[in-house]
């Protein structure tokens, strides 16, 4: 039984990683297809870097992700703090419900309703609409990442600061924000991944002049196999792997440190 369990785990791991390695393997195939490997080539990587349009789209994607996560984190901090300090628990519950609507809503609904909204407000589809949309779907996630950290906070710290004569803004910057920093970082990180991972919402609000990577790849993939996509995905996988591993080791190291201190 134990053996079959191990075997199952190994099979699942192979299945889960198969598509990623499959893409990577054929990204070096000079035959230009995803079935018979002819000979090794770096051509597709070179052509990705020489394709200025693709480079612009890559830059767009990264800028959209960074801008939207920074703004979403700032608004999310405001949101989490105001929910935390809210006196009426009824209003808090209903605001949290509204917050959760955004999280459980299918991407198609978010995309379609934002398309209506932007047309209604007269915002033309392009970089602005994509950034606004990404900020909008990231804020609720940031709020949810920060809120538990606020509730974990020891309230006597706030009382102590107040007794010692700290102004509200001083309490906020010197006591509250340092306490919830891990939540803020986690929220920012989540907003970043949601933004980079998004396809459906962007697909509805990109318009014709502006594009992000996932929308562009969709357009390319609909026309069939293009090994440039393989090359891009291999590079993305390596970058993501590095970032996630760094994040993983930093976060595990941090918990050890905190344990030592206490």
């Amino acid at each position: 039984m134990k053996l079959t369990g191990r075997l199952f785990l190994i099979i699942m791991l192979i299945v889960l990683y198969l598509p990623i390695f499959y893409l990577a393997y054929y990204s070096f195939n000079s035959a230009g297809t995803m079935n018979e490997f002819e000979s090794f080539t770096f051509d597709y990587y070179l052509s990705v870097f020489q394709d200025s349009r693709l480079m612009v789209i890559l830059m767009n994607t990264i800028s959209v992700a960074l801008i939207s996560s920074v703004v979403a984190t700032i608004v999310g901090i405001c949101g989490a703090l105001s929910l935390y300090f809210l006196k009426s628990s009824k209003i808090r519950a209903s605001l949290l419900n509204i917050n959760n609507i955004m999280i459980v809503s299918p991407d198609v609904i978010i995309g379609a309703s934002f398309l209506i909204l932007f047309t209604f407000l007269g915002i033309s589809l392009g970089s602005v609409s994509v950034i606004l949309a990404h900020i909008a779907f990231s804020i609720p996630i940031v709020v949810l990442m920060i809120l538990p950290k606020l509730y974990e906070m020891n309230t006597s710290l706030l009382d102590a600061a107040r007794d010692l004569g700290a102004t509200p803004s001083l309490i906020l910057s010197r006591v509250v924000l340092p306490q919830i920093k891990p939540g803020i970082l986690a929220g920012f990180f989540m907003a970043l991944t949601y933004s980079l991972d998004d396809f459906a919402v962007s697909f509805f609000v990109t318009g014709s002049g502006f594009s992000v990577l996932s929308v562009e790849i969709y357009a390319m993939a609909r026309q069939g196999i293009s090994l440039e996509i393989n090359a891009i995905s291999t590079m993305i996988f390596l970058i993501v792997l590095t970032i996630v591993l760094i994040y993983y080791f930093l976060s595990t190291r941090k918990t050890v440190k905190r344990g030592d201190l206490s």
Binding site: L18, P19, I20, Y22, Y26, T193, F199, S214, I229, I236
Partner: peptide
């Protein structure tokens, strides 16, 4: 971990597979 790779890329891989 594979969740961090865009869904679109993984779907595209299945076109080949």
């Amino acid at each position: 971990l594979p969740t961090w790779i865009n869904i679109l890329l993984k779907t595209y891989a299945f076109i080949g597979i």
